[in-house]
Design a protein around this nucleic acid. Structure first.
Lengths: 295, 295
DNA sequence: CCATTGGCATACCGAAAACGTATGGGTTGA
DNA sequence: TCAACCCATACGTTTTCGGTATGCCAATGG
């Protein structure tokens, strides 16, 4: 059962004539006649009544015609759908993001994406750092919004912005009275620490910041997420040095203050599999850059 | 876009491997690999990710897979449907019948047909004699139940039974007191006549009957249908010589009596286009014979 | 570090299928 | 009776397909 035969069959059925159909198909009449007879042989029954004034569908032919046209349309639609997905006009874009970025980035990012790629199903998942990496690698998410970027040979990274570090503390903290906190004031105070990228203490931007200013802060607790850090800060367990955007999701009772003399910042990055050929990534990158531009 | 390519594509997608799919398709691996690449070239985008452990669908491939499987199923279903129609397992059987036969034949015929050809859509239409002929010729009915048979070179006829003629008269008629009416009693009485087949007076069985008994009955009215004839009989316009089965649909006030010494009968026949190759006709004929057998 | 294995891609050749041209045969209508 | 129309058949050419042989690459194991 060949799709070309079906196409020929539908053409002849619609033209009610081999000659007319051949003309429309831009081919000679005899080979078309042969193909129709081969199709009839394959089915095992005549599909047309041959009259002196052209061809007319038999009932078996009518039964075939309906499904054949549908099959043709489906095949064409399948090819078109595949092309549309490959070109990024349709498909699915699965985005893994970290919770801190939700309030800061998503409200501008999502409308921008819906405008840019209206045919694409968007799928957002709030994921922890390690899950983002794992799901990028197994392709169950296409891109990830990270802070900081994932460091992995298979994963490509594009920096789209940065967040200055700020000090997060309970509102009753004496430091909260300052409009900006000098680094020196942090000496010896307990720190609520976040995970180091790649389990390497030196790779942490906060560690680097403290080291450069020769500040030592004992680690009171180590938590996985910025929000856990803020909870512990609120509980009086210690201070946290967090990206500025964390303010947007901070609970009442926490205040943020800039660190005087510290221009350090943490990168916001888009990460994706190096071998992913999804054309949606470029678009996503553009939209993400736009979304973080005002920050 | 070739259906074979789609079949190959689906096989590879399901086996997640060219080699395995080739085995299942009973062909060598290289040509299958070539066909897949040709399909990708036709679509204009890669459909598989080639890994060291086999093939994996890209998103474009997934988009194609859904429709390709559907298209394959539709094509197979179309072929099967055409075969089913050609073999008489499915399809439509359009039956034209005359009103007089409705009560006599249809109650036994219809259940018989539904049992014999459950997959076939039945379509019954009560039609006048000339309409039956016309619609057989233009193929808008497949078979016709006639009494008497249609006489036309394009139309084939099978006699499935016969109905003896009876005399229909008002219940108050003096003849109604007889259990059987001798032909001689009809002499000179007004007759309600039905149309002659082929507009040929000699071809009418009733005319032949009267001629053979040398009876002359003046024609009081000429009507198209048996039921009209009975209406006029009831109105006292004359007598009618009708097939026995007309009793079943006769209005109150009409009685039927056999004609003594007249063994004449009128044929019940199934008629169809000589060039119709519908396999349903044979089945219909069998069922119709069964349905009229007790009569 | 090299050999082996597993899997897909490429090259080439023979076979099958399709297409075009030429032509036949049947019916219709002038 | 002839011309026109339409489908079917025949035959040669070209395209395409499938099989065999082989190459390339990565992962695996000694």
């Amino acid at each position: 059962m060949d799709l070309r035969r079906l196409r020929y069959f539908v053409a002849v059925a619609e033209a009610r004539s081999v000659g007319k159909a051949a003309e429309r198909l831009r081919m000679a009449q005899p080979p078309l006649s042969v193909q129709i007879r081969k199709l009839e042989a394959e089915i095992g029954a005549p599909l047309f009544r041959r009259g002196t004034r052209g061809m007319d569908l038999t009932e078996a032919g009518q039964a075939l015609l309906a499904r054949a046209s549908e099959a043709l349309a489906l095949a064409a639609d399948g090819a078109e759908a595949a092309r549309a997905v490959a070109s990024g006009r349709r498909g699915r874009l699965s985005v893994g993001y970290m919770f801190v970025l939700a309030n800061a980035v998503l409200p501008r990012l999502i409308p921008e994406l819906r405008r840019s790629i209206p045919g694409v199903d968007l799928d957002f998942a709030e994921l922890s750092a390690s899950t983002r990496e794992a799901r990028l690698l197994d392709r169950s998410v296409t891109v990830a919004l990270c802070m900081p970027a994932i460091n992995h040979p298979e994963i490509q990274v594009a920096r789209i912005g940065a967040q200055p570090f700020m000090l997060a503390m309970p509102i009753r903290s004496p430091l909260a009275r300052l409009s900006a906190v000098p680094m020196a004031k942090l000496q010896g105070r307990p720190l609520i620490a976040l995970p180091w990228p790649d389990h390497d203490p030196a790779s942490s931007a906060v560690a680097a910041l403290l080291r450069r200013h020769q500040i030592v802060m004992p680690i009171a607790s180590r938590v996985e997420t910025v929000h856990s850090a803020m909870s512990l800060v609120l509980a009086g367990e210690g201070l946290a040095i967090l990206p500025a955007c964390a303010q947007l999701g901070a609970p009442r009772g926490i205040v943020f203050r800039p660190l005087r003399d510290a221009t350090d910042s943490i990168d916001i990055a888009v990460c994706w599999r190096r071998d992913s050929q999804s054309p949606l990534i470029r678009t996503f990158l553009k939209c993400a850059e736009k979304a973080v531009a005002p920050m």
